[in-house]
Design a protein around this nucleic acid. Structure first.
Lengths: 211, 211
DNA sequence: GTCTATATGCGGATAGAC
DNA sequence: GTCTATCCGCATATAGAC
């Protein structure tokens, strides 16, 4: 039916605007205007802006959960690159979440709490991943080093895309946000620890991404 | 005179509130209420909220510039630890800047542009620093590795304190934000490259900060 | 310098007609 | 479902008295 169509368009439009201009800067008026509908109509589908944010966050969360499941089979550096790439794709599609996290904290505490839970999950997964890579001999790292690597990986996947916008020139509007490059950058954290074979793969990526 | 006193108090109060609740969530009303003055009075001293933000950012910028000057003499890992610690102290005192960077981008474009300039400066400084440490033999890294380390250091100093809030339990209000720990965490990026002597210092820090 | 009072606009959200 | 019209509250900012 047309109803759920509008509902879906609201979510898509909101997501695009949140990503482009930031959660606090995008009003329900603006969302409705962008879609060419009235604010009354918008509030018929979502009683509050908060509900829109919650729905979008839930999708983000589900998306990452799916990636996590599939990512359990990482056994080598190139698997890891793919897993990271997919992860950055997802984070990029919902980039408003991490970029406006401070605002989320103060205005949408329930969603922020879920975000904390997500972060804890990410840490556990990353830790398990690094331990596995160490056990497989893909990386040569002590338990402490593996632990630190896991933290660095989670830190980077969470914050890198936001940071990248600061460094790249003011082409803030026209941002393709190369998620492959982001994945490569994350992998470089492992550089000092990888075995020679994996090292060759990193060099291959390097030639691909660094001019 | 009392006038400039009030002006200063406005800046201090604004800074504290921005840090505690976020730039977009703190209104001029709230600042005035917190100080026990009227909004009219506040606007007598600062015609717009934007001016307050610009003054605070300028102080932040100056503060980092001072640290940069003093930091030119880093010749060993313990020097670097001190320099990083001072830097995190400054970033922590003005943490609203990086935490609400997305909002700064959309609502205070001029300040955001200055922030970009600052970031470029940071990158150059970090690069020079890593090259120097490599030349001194404190770290054993190729030119590429030194370059990557510099990027990682800037990324970490910029985003770590924001990320930390996400990971630590919901004691978001009562956050001492251990800047020494942040500096130690940043140093761990160098771990794989340091010479044995510096390694000993890192181990000392580790025993101090990691339970 | 500091106050009270007020103008103006925007954002979220609702009422009721169609 | 969708619209128009409107309410309410808050935020920035100003005017004018003290």
């Amino acid at each position: 039916m047309a109803s759920s169509n509008t509902r879906e368009r609201i979510l898509q439009t909101s997501l695009a605007l949140f990503n482009a201009h930031g959660l606090p800067s995008v009003s329900t008026h603006r969302i409705a205007a962008e879609m060419g509908i009235s604010t009354g109509n918008l509030h018929y589908h979502f009683k509050t802006k908060r509900l829109i944010v919650e729905w979008l966050f839930r999708r983000f969360d589900d998306r990452l959960a799916t990636i996590d499941e599939a990512g359990g089979g990482v056994r080598a550096i190139d698997d890891l690159w793919l897993a990271l790439h997919l992860r950055f794709e997802a984070i990029n599609e919902y980039r408003f979440v991490y970029r406006d996290m401070a605002h989320l904290e103060s205005e949408y505490p329930e969603t922020a709490a879920k975000s904390r839970t997500l972060m804890a999950r990410n840490l556990l997964n990353a830790r398990a991943l690094c331990e596995k890579l160490a056990a497989l001999g893909v990386i040569n790292a002590t338990a402490d080093e593996a632990e630190m690597l896991a933290l660095q990986i989670v830190f980077t996947t969470t914050c890198w895309l936001s940071f990248e916008r600061l460094v790249t020139q003011n082409a803030a509007s026209t941002r393709p946000s190369d998620t492959g490059l982001a994945a490569y950058y994350t992998l470089t954290l492992l550089t000092p620890y990888v075995d020679p074979q994996s090292r060759a793969y990193l060099d291959y990526l390097r030639s691909k991404y660094v001019q």
